[in-house]
């Protein structure tokens, strides 16, 4: 398990990184935490000629307060998400989900941006980002674009990010007092990707569910937004009956790949079960 040869670049500014990407085009590949890319390179599934390491660009790290938004630098590592009081205060779903990713060492290196951009349906942040209505700020030779998480994912390892662009920041609207949230992830063991997982963010207006996002991990070619499941709950008083209907709607959109974690039927059922559990917990939290 030895990676192939490549030229290594460690720009210290975003502008340099973007310039390098522009220079090398298809031959260039951005290195974030490296815990997906380096294993793929060791297996020689990926053999980029130029590796552009973003780890030395300090501006891309950290969690900042943007008033009614939280601004997360793309190169912020999972453990720094978990350690960020601001996130626990304004968008606790993100650190709560981060705790369920990989293991302590990997979380010291793996970044939210890498997880978001890799396009692997097994990654957890895509569903989280969809659930929290995140916006991705990307910078390329043409300047900056802002892309909503919902719609960013086009297929497995395929997103709206252009080869010459770098994700720089993730903007997440702060939760309200009546926001409830949960991420339920079934995995075989610590460090594993999800067999299935479900992220739920909702708001209660009294007992009525006034807003809801439901997104699923690893049960389709990308993270999936379960819109029909959301529609079941929206504007309703959420009870077990509706939760079950929503879970069924979530299951209906699942199209998982069979692997050693389970067959299509199991993963689909687990997406349903994770959704039930996430909705229940989110409702409970929204009630305060």
């Amino acid at each position: 398990m030895i990676p192939g040869k490549f030229e290594y670049h460690a720009p210290e500014t975003l502008a340099d990184a973007v310039a390098l990407l522009g220079q090398y085009g298809e031959d260039g590949k951005v290195l974030a935490g490296g815990h997906s890319l380096l294993p793929m390179m060791k297996l020689r599934f990926a053999e980029p000629a130029h590796l552009i390491d973003l780890n030395r660009i300090k501006d891309l790290r950290g969690v900042r307060d943007g008033g009614n938004k939280v601004l997360i630098g793309a190169m912020t590592v999972e453990n720094d998400l978990i350690a960020a009081d601001l996130l626990w205060a304004k968008c606790p779903l993100v650190p709560e989900a981060a705790k369920q990713i990989a293991d302590p060492q990997v979380r010291n290196r793996g970044t939210i941006g890498g997880d978001v951009c890799h396009g692997d349906p097994g990654n957890d942040h895509p569903a989280i980002m969809i659930a929290v209505d995140a916006t991705f700020v990307v910078v390329g030779p043409e300047g900056e674009r802002k892309l909503p998480a919902n719609g960013f994912y086009l297929g497995t390892y395929w997103t709206q990010l252009e080869e010459s662009e770098v994700l720089t920041e993730i903007q997440i609207p702060a939760f309200n007092d009546n926001t409830g949230w949960a991420y339920h992830k079934l995995k075989r063991k610590t460090g594993d990707w999800a067999t299935a997982a479900s992220a739920v963010v909702l708001e209660l207006d009294g007992d009525v569910c006034s807003r809801v996002n439901i997104a699923l991990t690893n049960v389709g070619p990308t993270a999936l937004k379960a819109e029909e499941a959301e529609a079941v709950l929206a504007g309703q008083v959420v009870d077990e009956n509706l939760i079950e209907q929503a879970a069924q709607k979530a299951m209906a959109i699942c199209d998982p790949a069979e692997d050693l974690r389970g067959d299509v039927e199991y993963k689909t059922h687990m997406a349903g079960e994770m959704t039930r559990r996430a909705i229940r917990q989110a409702v409970q939290r929204a009630r305060g």
């Binding site: 077990e240 079950e244 389970g262 039927e265 199991y266 229940r280």
Partner: peptide
């Protein structure tokens, strides 16, 4: 007896009906 394999038994027996709150 992985979760996946155990679930197959559970499911075959119809024990995995959605849980109550």
């Amino acid at each position: 007896h992985s979760a996946y394999n155990v679930w197959k038994t559970v499911h075959r027996l119809g024990l995995d009906k959605p849980s109550a709150a």
